[in-house]
Simulated scan of single mutants.
Amino acid sequence: MELDDDSANGLLRSFGRQVQALRIRRGMSKAELGAELSYSQSQIGSIEIGRRVMQSDAIDRADAVLDAGGVLIAMKEQVERAGFPKFFRDARRYEAKAVELHVYATQAVPGLLQTADYMQGVIRMERPQPPAHVMEQHITSRLERQKLFDRDPAVSMSFVVEENLLRRTFGNLDMMREQWERLLELGRRHHIELQVMPTACAEHAGMDGPFTLMETDQGQRIAYVEVQRVSRLHTDRKHVRELELKYGIIRAQALSPSASL
């Protein structure tokens, strides 16, 4: 089911009402449920009115704690998607099933690699600026995506980022230092390769902009392209193959993973 913004907001409100009804049936306060799920009382309140997205592992625990009989778990995938911006929701379905993921980034550190503070800094730059609760939803959902790093078996990943985005500071130097340290930590993992495309590189195959390549557990190969909050998923083999070829050249032109770190 494709989710527009109204449908997504309605789904989050419906899920929240379901949590509230189950909580009341069990005779639990918001604080008591929060203690079970590692949420504060106010965060449970935000979930129940549809202003906050409950993380997937918390949904599993809530279903058990509230004796929901699988009702909440059945809504989990749609709830997770509803927390993302409209233009990314379909791509998220493929990303969640990916066994390989490759990203070329030009404007900001890729969302999968961002720290929470960096995320907040990037989202605050958006114009028009989203409401505070939407910003919170997007940060929560983006952090949820990062569970991909710890999946077993590991997802094979590579990232090529432009040098200029590492030098652009959102917020303050301490925040950027934390982000750089996060990149170093992830770049040293055995299943992740991180490369930097130097600004001074004379030959550059990535002039058409950023993109993401994914392969699912079913062997389907997908390309995702996004610009100015407009996105497109490509599944036709010819177009995906062209971007795969381009990505291979970009990786060859960039610094090696060890030189990049």
Rank of each mutant, 00 (worst) to 15 (best):
E2L: 13
A8G: 03
N9C: 04
N9H: 14
G16N: 05
R17K: 15
R17C: 13
A21Y: 09
L22R: 04
L22H: 01
M28V: 11
M28G: 03
G34R: 08
S38E: 15
I47M: 04
I47Q: 00
D57Q: 15
I59Q: 01
A62G: 06
A68K: 03
A68F: 01
G70Q: 07
I73Q: 11
A74P: 00
M75I: 05
Q78M: 09
Q78H: 03
E80D: 08
F84M: 04
P85V: 08
P85K: 04
P85D: 09
R89Q: 02
A91I: 01
R92I: 04
R93P: 00
L101S: 02
L101E: 02
H102T: 08
V103L: 05
V103S: 02
Y104C: 06
A105V: 01
P110N: 07
G111L: 05
T115A: 10
A116W: 05
Q120R: 09
G121C: 06
E126G: 15
Q129A: 13
P130L: 15
A132H: 10
V134M: 07
M135R: 13
Q137F: 02
H138Y: 12
H138F: 12
L143W: 02
E144C: 09
K147S: 14
P153R: 10
M157C: 03
S158W: 00
V160I: 12
V161K: 00
N164R: 15
N164E: 15
L173H: 14
D174A: 12
M175L: 10
R177K: 15
Q179G: 05
W180E: 03
G187K: 08
H191M: 14
L194N: 01
T199Q: 05
E203G: 10
H204G: 06
D208E: 12
D208Y: 05
D208P: 03
I222R: 00
A223S: 13
V227D: 11
T235I: 09
R237G: 12
L243C: 01
L245H: 09
A252E: 13
L261A: 14
L261M: 11
